[in-house]
Design a protein around this nucleic acid. Structure first.
Lengths: 310, 310
DNA sequence: CTTGAAACG
DNA sequence: CGTTGCAAG
């Protein structure tokens, strides 16, 4: 039994696992008794220039839609009631979707993208209260579009792109591919942006700066915090997109959207900010709030919600 | 998703699955409302020639020892308190065994055999209150001894052999191998029997006669009830071994030790008698009782218990 | 239907 | 640690 619990395999390869290095630190007794939590303040529903929010978008990496449905993820969604719900890591073929979600009347317009090769891998979805003008799948490059990672909805005033960015993998086995992806994805977004401003949401699988994860020191060689991935994110900002959460809360630490299931990381708030809303320059004036719903359970990620006037 | 629940795949290949044909019949409304259960009568502790039982042996196909331990299988064992406990389908490497069983003080002498090739496949065990004179593994033929299927314990008065006989598989893909096994296993037992009488227990993966399963009609082409497997069992009897349960209860129908997890087969008592105690001729006079413990839960098989005077 | 392992995260 | 499809029964 190569991966038996008694073998300590988890601890052994922990240094190649998102968040593990910091969680382990806890075992050494270095962290305070009470974890430093981020208390999400009340939603702001008006932009700085006085516009009232008229669009609410929620993004959630559900880590397996079927398990997430069983864990009552949809109850939380009904409570949150966003205009658009974007999901990542659905890990579910369209014909295997639970009736609870396919029958949801609140969202008559539902779009699904799944991995063509590997069943039960990756996959994103977008559920809309109002019908988009147009929907496209992928980023227009064959090599990137077989894993069900991107859906783009065109609305009258903007594009909404939801993405599940490829994980660089343990041992960074897929970092090279990720770098190619970052280049091509950025090009895709820049092209879209020329036509109409866009909102990008989803699991971008990178913590941008040290403030965006608990254990920045221990994770510089790990997937999600390598120099290359961070640089990719920086270039997205340089291309004119704004990290809505960081824009509104530039100093806010301990605000994370992902915690490994291992080593009680969530209870200790040993997390990463991997889920984002990025905005084209033209949409920033309408930005009202960018929220991290860290109380919502059902996945190793929590949902994030955007309030915007478009 | 080739085997999605919505596809009805289970029903489609049901005819290649132990017990399914009969369970399906239930859906057609052909069986009585109340299932015909077998009520195990009180244990008889004396042999017909007046000897008091002095040896109690229990055999149980646990279908995954770790899951079975979690389902409190050991609580039942403590209650039953046999002198020897034989387990099949442990599906667990020795070093991955749960402490609950490795630390069991009631059975100081514990023997384990696991599959060498496939982890988590097959595997048998024997736990003894008193130390056997000798222990051997396998049946002395290289080609059969890599899957952890047989343990033989030598006691002063008899050999105890526990076996997990190879399943012929869906579509009978392994029926040819099974026939080879049956020949070689019978030869092994006959050789042992020349030295000292033996008790053979375990999952022999065959229902001998029509009385030994609910749906004999529908299963003649299925693993566990093919003419070849039944003939293998008949030849074991011809070699001088006695099916202890059938010897004591020649007419008892609806007495099963296995029910597929599918289609509620156990609740409907749509089962098979696959688990046996076979005795050398010299031990039959000491036979007190051969029990089917069909109330015990924790596996798709129930335990069987032998009371014997040796 | 259920087990355990494998791949992935 | 937890999800998925997989092989096996």
């Amino acid at each position: 039994m190569k991966r038996g619990k008694k073998e300590g395999a988890e601890a052994a390869d922990g240094d190649q696992d998102n968040g593990t290095a910091a969680a382990k630190k806890g075992k050494k007794g270095k962290e305070p008794e009470a974890p430093i939590m981020y208390e999400d303040p009340p939603d702001i529903m008006t932009s700085k220039d006085g516009q009232a929010a008229n669009m609410k978008i929620t993004s959630w990496n559900v880590d397996g839609l079927r398990a997430w449905v069983k864990k009552k993820g949809l109850d939380w969604v009904r409570e949150e009631a966003p205009d658009v719900l974007c999901l990542q890591e659905t890990k579910c073929a369209e014909k295997a979707l639970p009736a609870e979600i396919t029958s949801m009347e609140e969202y008559p317009h539902k779009y699904w993208a799944g991995s063509e090769e590997k069943e039960g891998y990756s996959g994103v979805a977008m559920l809309c209260k109002t019908e988009p003008v147009n929907i496209t799948y992928g980023i227009g490059k064959e090599e990137h579009d077989k894993e069900g990672r991107v859906i783009t909805a065109e609305f009258p005033a903007f594009f909404l792109v939801t993405a599940y960015v490829p994980n660089a993998g343990r041992g960074l086995v897929r970092l090279d591919y990720r770098k190619t992806w970052d280049v091509d994805f950025r090009a895709y977004l820049s092209e879209l942006d020329k036509r109409k401003p866009l909102v990008l949401c989803g699991d971008l699988n990178v913590a941008h700066e040290e403030i965006d994860l608990k254990n920045s020191k221990g994770n510089k060689k790990n997937a999600g915090f390598t120099a290359e991935e961070r640089e990719g994110f920086s270039q997205l900002l340089a291309a004119g997109f704004t990290d809505s959460f960081r824009h509104l809360y530039p100093e806010q630490a301990n605000a994370y959207t992902f915690w490994t299931y291992m080593m009680n990381a969530r209870a200790k708030n040993v997390g990463w900010r991997l889920d984002y809303f990025l905005l084209s320059a033209g949409l920033v004036p309408g930005l009202c709030d960018s929220k991290i719903r860290n109380k919502a359970l059902g996945s190793d990620h929590c949902p994030v919600t955007l309030h915007i006037a478009v």
